[in-house]
């Protein structure tokens, strides 16, 4: 068991944002968090990444998070925030290297090269990060985050907050395939917030759907991505097609409210 979350709640300014979450994550498992905006996904991830205080127990490899030394934890838990703004002239290589533990002087770090090649940023190596596109910057940050835990031994947890949001479709596939391969080959556990339901269906071993701070339901893509769940959580109508590849495809049919608003202008005036 890489990560065990018991009764986790997060209170911010007297408001309970996340309520009584229970989660078990095995080594090599990819679990994706779904849910509407404001459901508490990012708050849950921030609690697990040590940014926010929480109530309840979170244990990694059977040891409470608070019992880990921060520098040791950094080699076993890596976090990719939703947005990382870089305002200073750092090169791609410098940012990726920040995730790496200190190496002996002058010894080239082969993991940096490998990750940059795999994530298709090797050609940007000496470019300044502030000058890159959003998608390129996202891949740079992901390389930094992966390098942090890649060669550590023992349990490893990767927390990703919308790590593909700025990527074009082909790079989304590339990045998710890299993450999937690392999970399966290296036993890295992945907990990722995703908004693209089809990306989740394609790559997740398990989906957890959150709504209003609680866990609404969890399970495989076929169990979770159903008409009733999508309707209840997102208020969203969709056609769900079972693909021969073994995962469902969700085709949106528009939200009811938007249709109403566009079909009847007086509706918007009234509100």
């Amino acid at each position: 068991m890489t990560l065990r979350v018991n009764d986790l709640s997060v209170l911010l300014g007297g408001v309970t944002i996340v309520r009584e979450i229970n989660l078990m994550l095995e080594a090599g498992e990819i679990v994706m968090l779904l849910g509407p905006n404001g459901a508490g996904k990012s708050t849950l991830l921030k609690a697990l990444s040590g940014e926010l205080p929480f109530q309840g127990q979170v244990a990694m490899a059977g040891r409470e998070l608070a019992d880990w030394a921060p520098s040791q934890l950094a080699r076993h838990r890596a976090v990719m925030p939703q947005k990382v703004d870089v305002n200073f002239p750092l090169t791609v290589e410098e940012v990726v290297a920040m995730g790496r533990p200190r190496t002996s002087r002058g010894k080239p770090d082969t993991i940096i090269d490998r990750l940059m090649t795999e994530l298709d940023i090797a050609h940007l190596r000496y470019r300044m990060v502030p000058g890159l596109s959003g998608g390129e910057q996202q891949r740079v940050q992901l390389a930094r985050v992966l390098g942090q835990i890649l060669d550590a031994s023992g349990p490893r947890l990767l927390l990703l907050d919308e790590c593909t949001s700025a990527l074009d479709p082909s790079h989304q596939q590339l990045v998710m395939e890299v993450i999937q391969r690392l999970a399966k080959e290296q036993g890295i556990t992945v907990l990722a917030i995703v908004h693209d339901l089809n990306l989740a269906a394609q790559f997740a071993d398990r989906l957890v759907v959150m709504q209003a701070g609680r866990c609404f339901c969890e399970g495989g893509a076929h169990d979770v991505l159903t008409h009733s769940v999508l309707k209840a959580v997102y208020g969203y109508r969709a056609r769900i097609i079972s693909l021969p590849e073994g995962y469902p495809l969700v085709v949106p049919l528009g939200s009811g409210s938007a249709q109403m608003a566009s079909g009847n202008p007086s509706c918007r005036q009234a509100s």
Binding site: S71, A74, R75, D85, V145
Partner: peptide, 13 residues
């Protein structure tokens, strides 16, 4: 330079 939260993620106090 990457943000205050990243400092903690990287294991620095």
């Amino acid at each position: 330079l990457l943000g205050e939260s990243v400092v903690g993620h990287l294991g620095y106090p």
